[in-house]
């Protein structure tokens, strides 16, 4: 029952975001600000995890492929596909659910508790439109870009790792990369990226915006926001795979 009421309130929040901006310039400024906060702010962590997940997946694939019948270049193919299909969009978004999600939830929670949201409302500004919409839009602009960056870095990390540990040469790896490459996979990854970007910005915004109480509740709601977003990302991941990869 509470799940349904919460979902209903979530939908109402989404609906409430759409109203005529009081001042386009200010909304644009806020959007740009959020893009830099969310995009640039989480670039560092994305770079680090992408590189290492690529490297690790390459080494583990090499370790598992012991047969001489399978050419070495297959390793590159496997790394490429796992990074593009799963690691770059899903793993990165799970991490971003923590980074971006807790930031959004605690920022809005703090604004709610200290009546800053009420202050906006009294000024005649729609706080949902001014505070939440730019955060969601900024996430949907920057997170798919981060996913693309992560794909590149992940594959590069894998290449570096196998070459450094003398599994294969650069040329062999590059040859494998181009073998039976499917553009559709990148499209699929981007669909995931957009979906997850929406999830990990709107769910924390919902929990932050509706905080009641004090500092303690801000912490609680941001934890809850991260947990719920992660579960939602994994669930959406499954649904998308079932729908879009169904041959």
């Amino acid at each position: 029952m509470t799940l349904f009421t919460e979902f209903g309130r979530y939908l109402l929040m989404i609906k409430g975001m759409f109203s005529r901006p009081e001042n386009h310039k200010m909304y644009w400024k806020e959007l740009m600000h959020q893009c830099s906060e969310i995009g640039i702010g989480s670039l560092g962590i994305v770079v680090i995890i992408s590189f290492f997940m690529g490297a690790v997946s390459a080494l583990q694939t090499a370790y598992q492929l012991v047969s001489d019948l399978i050419p070495k270049s297959t390793i590159a193919q496997i790394v490429r596909d796992t990074v593009i299909l799963e690691f770059a969009p899903t793993l990165v978004c799970i991490v971003l659910a923590g980074v971006v999600g807790s930031k959004i939830a605690s920022e809005l929670g703090n604004m709610r508790v200290s009546e800053q949201i009420d202050a906006l409302e009294i000024m005649g500004i729609n706080p949902k439109a001014y505070l939440i919409l730019p955060k969601i839009l900024a996430s949907m602009i920057t997170i798919p870009l981060l996913v693309v960056v992560s794909m590149g870095l992940g594959i590069w990390g894998g290449r570096l790792a196998v070459v450094l540990s003398n599994v294969m040469s650069n040329n062999e790896f590059d040859k494998g990369l181009l073998e039976s490459f499917l553009g559709y996979n990148v499209f699929f990854a981007l669909v995931k990226g957009y979906t997850f970007a929406f999830i990990i910005s709107s769910i924390p915004a919902f929990y932050g915006y509706h905080v009641q109480g004090g500092a303690l509740e801000i912490g609680r709601s941001s934890t809850k926001a991260v947990v719920v977003s992660c579960v939602a990302v994994l669930f959406a991941d499954y649904v998308l795979a079932a729908v879009l990869l169904n041959k």
Binding site: E115, A119, E121, I122, M123, G124
Partner: peptide, 13 residues
Amino acid sequence: IRKQIGMLFQGSA
């Protein structure tokens, strides 16, 4: 109407 309202909150906000 709210554009014509100024409000000071108890906690300043």
